[in-house]
């Protein structure tokens, strides 16, 4: 068998150097911090796995983790089907294409903290479009005092911000399907559902894989929007993992514990992303 030509790996070297400085070296530092009680690099005490034991038995973090999983599950359950529906509804030719692409891209251009501020105002029960409308309809809505309302608002805000990404990815996937597939489906008198199930969905698999992974990772690390909107409240109702981590690292300046926590956080994201990736590419290997 012809051996591999590994010379192309040299082309990866610049990226590797960049990743080393932006990710690997900081991560190694986090690992070092996680086994020490540390105030600064010159004032530190080795504590071994003590922080990990504490973190793993901390009920505050268990609650944050559960909230985070529920939140990411809801985000994926809403945004992925909605993104597909939006992409399927978009025009394929004419002036409608650039118009819909620009409209969809707009929420993606808004910075995270601005999104939080926008929804903080929209959701206000006295002057906000959404808040005052709901209260005007007789629905008791107040995201600042009701955990249920806070959750709904944070979810709607995320859906508003990020469904466009899923829709744009799906739209690009749909546009790449050759017309012959649709012609064959027409000859077979396939229903719209059959076209979606046996042509469009299989062809969308790769972009959906990217969309699911991006949205999972991003929603699992969400910080700015709920922080600006609810500050993690009411109580701790919308305090997710990254906010708990920030409180620990910056609020309490408990760097060792925060480092141990962030490594556990990283391992969770790594495992779930790997499971998603493996599950969605599993059939490729069989083929």
């Amino acid at each position: 068998m012809k051996p591999y030509n590994n010379k192309a790996w040299w082309l990866v070297l610049p990226v590797f150097v960049l990743v080393a400085f932006s990710a690997i070296i900081p991560m190694m530092t986090v690992v070092n911090y996680s086994v020490q009680d540390i105030f600064d690099p010159s004032t530190r005490y080795f504590v071994g796995t003590e922080w990990y034991r504490e973190i793993l038995s901390d009920p505050r973090l268990h609650d944050s983790l559960v909230r985070q999983f529920i939140y990411s599950f809801c985000v994926l359950a809403i945004e992925i089907p909605l993104g597909i529906i939006v992409a399927l509804s978009m025009p394929r030719r004419g002036l409608g294409v650039p118009v819909s692409l620009i409209l969809l891209a707009l929420p993606l251009l808004v910075p995270w903290n601005v999104v939080g501020t926008i929804w903080q105002i929209i959701g206000r029960e006295d002057i906000g479009l959404y808040g005052s409308l709901l209260n005007g309809l007789g629905i008791d809505y107040n995201y600042a005092s009701s955990p249920r309302d806070a959750w709904i608002t944070v979810l709607i805000m995320d859906v508003w911000h990020w469904t466009s990404l899923v829709a744009l990815l799906c739209y690009s996937g749909l546009r790449s399907i050759p017309d012959v597939y649709y012609q064959a489906a027409r000859i077979d008198r396939a229903s719209a559902w059959a076209v979606f199930r046996y042509i469009q969905l299989p062809k969308l698999k790769n972009v959906l894989l990217i969309a699911v992974m991006l949205r999972f990772m991003d929603s699992f690390m969400i910080y700015t929007e709920p922080f600006v909107l609810t500050g993690g409240g009411p109580g701790t109702a919308t305090t997710f993992l990254s906010q708990t981590l920030t409180q620990m690292a910056l609020g309490q300046f408990d760097l060792g514990r925060a480092a141990a926590f962030s490594l556990i956080y990283f391992l969770i994201i790594l495992l779930v992303t790997w499971v998603f990736y493996t599950a969605m590419t599993h059939n490729d290997d069989k083929g």
Binding site: V31, N32, V35, Q36, I38, P41, R44, G48
Partner: peptide, 15 residues
Amino acid sequence: MSWMAWTLPTASFFV
């Protein structure tokens, strides 16, 4: 490299 706060166990792990 002192800013990375190395310890012997973590250095051994990475090696």
